[in-house]
């Protein structure tokens, strides 16, 4: 997949370059050199990108198709079909989906309340600042914070027990399991949603609402037929981004579970540490699978983004 992107990029670049060079007529021969130098300006950046993004990734993915002696194989991809790996993907996808949906909806409601809910202006400013902080407060410290809140002796766990006699952990809740992880992830998911969706809410023009009212629509009809359809691509796109954000999260999961939960990023981490599988090819295949999922999400996001920006292009 990635290799494909690299090749495409090389192809397009060289094609452009060739076009640039061949477009130079005989009378402009000295210009050709200048045009070549022009391209030199961006070479360091792209060399860096190749050295530290594309080549290592390509290297990894080639590994997914190689036996230990370098012959071509699809065995590693087949091995992805093992139940515990499928379970890992399934758990990762479920957690990402739940936190994208939950974080997306909650973040949207918050942003809506702060921007269009008729609240004082400072609420909005405060929300944006908090979101900037919280969306970057992830990883090990976040795990610590939730252990102190919802762990076995966490504040809320103890509070529920002492005040209501409610034993959280006896009802199947476990901070180190599906719901615990989801609640923790939500802490960086919903602020990200707020940051993404706020400009879109700002972009809802007052005139649309007024035009709708003027034509006899009530509030609900305005939302149903105008505002929601306009926001929908951005909403979905943002949720897709949240999905990817959770899918690739390693540090938070590791900090919370010590690497023991059967999640794809944790499995890959184990591979890197050389702990468990002793089958590097499988590790590469796992990574490849992960990138495939992420690429799909990004393509979905870009597509939706295009769609909404196309609509709004002329909205001056």
């Amino acid at each position: 997949m990635l290799l494909y992107i690299v090749l495409l990029w090389c192809f397009v670049t060289t094609k452009d370059l060739m076009a640039q060079l061949t477009a130079v007529g005989p009378s402009q021969q000295p210009m050709a050199a200048a045009r070549f130098w022009r391209w030199l300006g961006v070479i360091p950046f792209f060399l860096f990108a190749i050295a530290f993004i594309f080549w290592p990734s390509a290297n990894l993915f080639l590994g997914a198709f190689r036996t230990s002696d370098g012959a071509f194989t699809v065995e590693h991809l087949v091995e992805l079909g093992q139940p515990f790996i499928l379970e890992a993907y399934w758990l990762s996808i479920r957690i990402s989906f739940v936190t994208a949906l939950g974080g997306g909806i909650f973040g949207f409601l918050l942003a809506y309340a702060a921007i269009l809910g008729g609240l004082p202006r400072f609420v909005r400013t405060a929300l944006m600042t908090f979101s900037g902080v919280a969306s970057n407060f992830a990883g090990v410290p976040l795990a610590f914070a939730f252990i102190a809140t919802l762990g076995r002796v966490g504040l809320i766990t103890v509070l529920l027990r002492d005040l209501f006699g409610f034993q959280l952990y006896q009802y199947g809740f476990n901070l180190y399991g599906f719901w615990g992880l989801s609640i923790t992830y939500m802490y960086f998911q919903f602020p990200l949603m707020v940051l993404i969706i706020a400009p879109a809410l700002d972009g809802l023009r007052r005139e649309w609402r007024e035009a709708a009212e003027n034509l006899g629509a009530n509030s609900w009809q305005y939302w149903r037929y105008v505002a929601l359809p306009i926001l929908l691509p951005t909403l979905l796109g943002a949720m897709i981004l949240l999905f990817g954000n959770a899918f690739g999260a390693y540090a938070t999961a590791y900090g919370l579970t010590g690497g023991s939960l059967n999640l794809v990023p944790l499995l890959i981490g184990q591979q890197v540490r050389g702990d468990v599988l002793h089958n590097p090819g499988l590790g590469y295949a796992l990574a490849l699978g992960m990138v495939v999922v992420m690429t799909i999400t990004l393509i979905g996001y870009t597509w939706l983004q295009r769609r909404s920006s196309r609509w709004l292009r002329q909205a001056n």
Partner: peptide, 21 residues
């Protein structure tokens, strides 16, 4: 009276067409 009960047509300076329709 609420705007949506007045049966008045309005044309806005910035068109205000619904972009999704």
């Amino acid at each position: 009276t609420r705007p949506n009960a007045r049966n008045i047509g309005m044309v806005f300076q910035s068109y205000a067409l619904f972009p999704n329709m």
